[in-house]
Write a protein that binds this DNA or RNA. Structure first.
Lengths: 233, 233
DNA sequence: ATCTCTTACATTGCATACAATCGTAAGAGT
DNA sequence: ACTCTTACGATTGTATGCAATGTAAGAGAT
């Protein structure tokens, strides 16, 4: 029915990995709505593979939190509630500062230079007014900045947890709602974090990260600011 | 060859779930050694199912961190290194205090009473010298105590992350190496945490948890105490 | 009219057969 | 003796057919 990219040029080699990517993309695109069931047979038909790789891809997506499985009934797109947003934010507010704190002790000059470059490119983008593509580019650079910082923590588990936690929420987040001053402040946070890390000052870097995240939250959801957790004075 | 419980009375209903449990148990028992490959065909033969549910169980175990997958080569038991121990401890040291802090705001009387009961039973156990069974019982109660506390945080993601992070490390941890004073201190920490939670004092509860974890670590691994992270004064 | 039981259908769960891929060891050539 | 090639065997990856299970619609009874 829907001619929606039947597997074609996907970097992945196994059919399971391709189906995995395809379904994830459809969720991100909104082609599959929350609470909608993703049927094995239907996906298999549309992507022109058998049900086996579809089954395996669905199980992976379930364990990654994209879908929820109901025994003998199938897998459906996980719903995104206010509570989910709160949970993810609580976790980021603790884990990302932890990551930059650890990064202070492990980071190498190359990574720091790469981060510096990313920060510069983001700053350059914010010099002029942004269109849709600009917002998209900025979001992409920002995501890469955070990802690289997290990798520098030298804690694989932490990196994996944050990746999966952030990824599921990144869909609904962009810079469209940022006004000029909020954007500049965000860029300054990045810059300040790099300086703190370069100075090996973990506490400084951690607190800038907390400020960075809290400032961003104000723009996205209504917050009870008294519920902040584990924040040192 | 090895008559190792061919599926029989396992609470789970689907074959996949049963295989999942069986393999996990064998890893815990040490029947599968680190870096040893778990072959689909072999497991299928021994548990008297087809390869299909075995494949699905293996994939789940991979995503839970018990096994690591190598494309076209199979899944093998994940190795446990010093670095793994360090990573898990760093995470616990941040996430478990976060959990008790959150629990301070959400906990109900029933849960608190249940925790109180668990603490009492552990204290009773430590009154008399412990044999092997005693240590096992104590470890079980302790695990349940922490698990319940984490659930009370009312953050499903946090609970799931901690469960999977702690579970993989719990294998090599028990109370055999605890001397009398260390045991009593551990029990006092539990008690103090409950009092802090009952008083709604999150900072107090969080810091007792950090002390609890740090005290436990001294008994298990050699530590560079300067690497503690995100610890408020 | 409402409730319960029956029955048919859609969908997942499992088994088996076949194809693709990788590691390895034997063998030819240098 | 060493290296490169190549064919084989073992193992995973994929397809398809059948069984088990849950859902929902409809007939019958209260």
């Amino acid at each position: 029915m829907t001619p929606t990219t039947p597997l074609e040029a996907s970097g992945a080699r196994t059919a399971t990995a391709q189906v995995h990517e395809a379904i994830k993309q459809r969720i991100l695109d909104g082609a599959y709505r929350p609470l909608e069931f993703v049927r094995e047979a239907a996906v298999a038909r549309e992507l022109e593979v058998s049900r086996t790789p579809v089954r395996e891809a669905l199980r992976e997506l379930v364990s990654e939190g994209w879908l929820e499985a109901i025994p003998h009934q199938g897998a459906r797109v996980a719903e995104w509630t206010e509570k989910d947003a709160r949970e993810v934010f609580e976790l980021r507010l603790v884990l990302e500062p932890m990551a930059v704190g650890l990064a202070c002790r492990h980071i190498d000059a190359d990574t720091l230079a790469h981060l510096d470059d990313l920060a510069s490119r983001m700053e350059a983008l914010t010099e002029s007014p942004l269109d849709g593509a600009g917002h998209s580019e900025l979001a992409s650079l920002n995501h890469e900045f955070h990802r690289l910082l997290i990798q520098a923590s030298d804690n694989q588990r932490l990196a994996q947890i944050l990746e999966s936690v952030v990824r599921t929420s990144i869909i609904r987040r962009n810079f469209a709602s940022y006004d000029r001053s909020a954007l500049k402040r965000s860029m300054q946070h990045h810059r300040e974090m790099l300086i703190a890390i370069g100075a090996g000052n973990a506490a400084w870097a951690e607190n800038v990260m907390r400020a960075h995240l809290l400032a961003a939250r104000v723009l996205h959801v209504t917050v009870d600011t008294s519920t902040a957790t584990s924040s040192p004075p």
